[in-house]
Design a protein around this nucleic acid. Structure first.
Lengths: 159, 159
DNA sequence: CCTCGTCTTGACGTTAACGTAAGATGCCGC
DNA sequence: GCGGCATCTTACGTTAACGTCAAGACGAGG
């Protein structure tokens, strides 16, 4: 049986966690500065426990859904108070719902902006067709644009 | 006939434009610093022409759809080259379409985040129902939240 | 002993779009 | 001549989440 890298007794160096979660040492130290992580020490060196790893995971999840580090910190703090987890869960629930409301509002803003832009595009296209149809972007150019955009991202899967 | 505040010969003080478009003098000076506006002067004082007003309008429209001042500047510069407006329109069109693509991608991110959050909420609610149903937010609390949120926004229509 | 690689702690830099004084000028009416 | 108001320039402050050095400590290997 191979060593289970995630068994609860395991510890991690800063680099190991960074590799696993694709972040930088600087980021982890930053989270520590902000009180979101408090790894043990071996001499000078940070030693992350399985619990630290779990907290980091939550931090990154929170970031993905757009929570600020401050908000994530509030939630995490409640894990430590820990009245069995209930208060923490209740607060997380509130935070989550607030975030959903905020995100939905953001989405409306975006939809409005897209509509404005579409209207602007229609206008411009009409005018260009009338005066300089040669300047209109063609489908081929658009494909090119998309390809370039994709090349810019994710060189991971490109080997 | 009342004076038409928008007739092309009119000029504007900084404050007049700020009142009309609900922005601050600091913002207009900032745009000027960035080369987006170049009002005339009467002694020390800025004098905005009808054209300046039109540019400002475009700047604010651009901001609403999430363009950066730098991008807005690129578009505005082309108004000055002015090969009849065609090149400018073509570039604006490109910028607009790029922005639409970016916004649509952003919206997908938001939708994903909302899904994650909804899943998290479901989880938390299930657990709370099982252990501490008294901590569950009730509909009344949610209404309260919404009302507070709305009070915070838009005191405009409230007279 | 020297070098390599990984780790550490500072501490300043970055980005965007202004906000916020501080201190000076200038015009208006009284 | 003076208070009051609008305007001006200059320049540092703000926010978030790190990035980017710099300089030093430590063990392993040759």
């Amino acid at each position: 049986m191979p060593t289970d890298l995630r068994r609860p007794q395991r510890t991690y160096t800063i680099r190991q966690l960074c590799l696993e979660f694709k972040c930088t040492p600087r980021a982890l130290r930053f989270y520590e500065d902000k009180g979101l992580l408090t790894p043990a020490r071996d001499g000078m060196n940070r030693v992350y426990s399985y619990k630290d790893r779990a907290r980091l995971k939550l931090i990154l999840q929170g970031k993905r859904v757009g929570l600020s580090l401050a908000e994530i910190g509030e939630i995490l703090d409640l894990y430590d108070l820990d009245d069995g987890g209930a208060a923490q869960m209740a607060k997380s629930l509130r935070k989550f719902k607030e975030r959903i409301v905020a995100l939905e509002s953001q989405r409306e803003d975006i939809d409005r902006a897209i509509q404005e832009l579409r209207a602007g595009c229609d206008n411009l296209e009409r005018k260009l067709i009338a005066t300089r149809p040669d300047l209109l972007p063609r489908a081929a150019d658009y494909d090119q644009m998309l390809r370039q955009r994709l090349d810019g991202l994710e060189h991971v899967g490109a080997k």
